[in-house]
């Protein structure tokens, strides 16, 4: 039996949508960009080289926690072995679950990939191709409720990547007081990640959104108000911070592989 817009009681219209605009363009672009990022990130996560060019560490590998990490690249030591059960593991694989989980469970990205990848729905008022729908009420999608845990982990990563940006004020010999294009790249990455995290809906809720009485918590209300301003731009920050991470990695890979020289301003 037909359901949805083709249900018997609804107006008999055979088209899935009567929209005449290019409704397919946005999900197509989203699909293309996110899919490209996933392919590139997967390649880099397994590549296990060209992630460190003193003092620059790729955000895909920071903090580098494995015993196979290149000397000088480990901010928090090397608590993990480079092999488990005889299988070599890239240092990136120990950490990527956290930023990946943060973005996968992000309220904005959920909208983006539910539309672009799962077509649920592909666009507003365009009938989806699925015969059943349970939303985020059962596994695995009920795990989306774990977003705040990834948010907390994401904040820790932001601190670490900010430290990486500060360390980038050293030169290749480890002396402070220098600045290169790589420094700007990592600073840009850190700033964008902070904007993305602080504009997050969970951040907004944690700082003040959960309150019933704003008037009894003026400081939290003020913080909520500020984050609400950022929250308007959350989708923008989600995209540009994604590009920022990818760009930082591409730049450091180019420097580490010798394809590019990190230019020092002073």
């Amino acid at each position: 039996m037909e359901t949805g817009v083709f249900s018997q009681s609804r107006a008999a219209i055979k088209e899935r949508t009567l929209r005449t605009d290019r409704w397919w363009l946005q999900p197509a672009i989203t699909f293309g960009v996110l899919f490209s990022f996933v392919i590139y990130a997967t390649f880099r996560a397994f590549e296990n080289k060209y992630y460190f060019a003193e003092p620059l560490v790729s955000p895909f590998y920071s903090p580098c926690l494995s015993s196979s990490c290149i000397e000088g690249s480990s901010l928090l030591g090397q608590p993990f072995n480079n092999k488990y059960f005889g299988i070599g593991i890239s240092p990136s694989l120990f950490i990527l679950i956290f930023p990946l989980g943060f973005r996968m469970t992000c309220y904005y990205y959920r909208k983006a990939y539910y539309r672009a990848f799962w077509m649920s729905p592909p666009a507003c008022a365009v009938a989806e191709p699925h015969s059943k729908y349970t939303g985020e009420t059962r596994a695995p999608l009920i795990l989306q409720n774990g977003h705040r845990w990834f948010f907390y982990a994401g904040l820790v990563f932001n601190v670490l990547l900010s430290i990486d940006a500060v360390l980038a004020f050293k030169n290749a010999e480890g002396e402070w007081g220098h600045m290169s294009v790589g420094t700007l790249v990592l600073l840009n990455n850190a700033v964008l990640l902070w904007l993305y995290s602080l504009s997050c809906h969970t951040c907004r809720h944690t700082l003040g959104g959960r309150l019933r009485h704003f008037s009894k918590h003026p400081v939290r209300y003020k913080l909520w108000s500020w984050v609400s301003v950022l929250n308007h731009k959350h989708p923008t920050f989600a995209w540009i911070s994604l590009f920022g991470v990818a760009f930082a990695d591409i730049y450091i890979r180019a420097v580490a592989s010798g394809a590019w020289t990190n230019f020092y301003f002073f």
Partner: peptide, 29 residues
């Protein structure tokens, strides 16, 4: 829990109520 936050409600609201950002997501949180 059935809402998957695709924001179509917000897009069509003639009163420009930020339904998803200001009501649904806060309730989910």
């Amino acid at each position: 829990g059935m809402c998957n936050i695709t924001k179509c409600c917000t897009e069509v609201c003639p009163e420009h109520i930020r339904i998803t950002d200001n009501a649904i997501i806060p309730m989910k949180e």
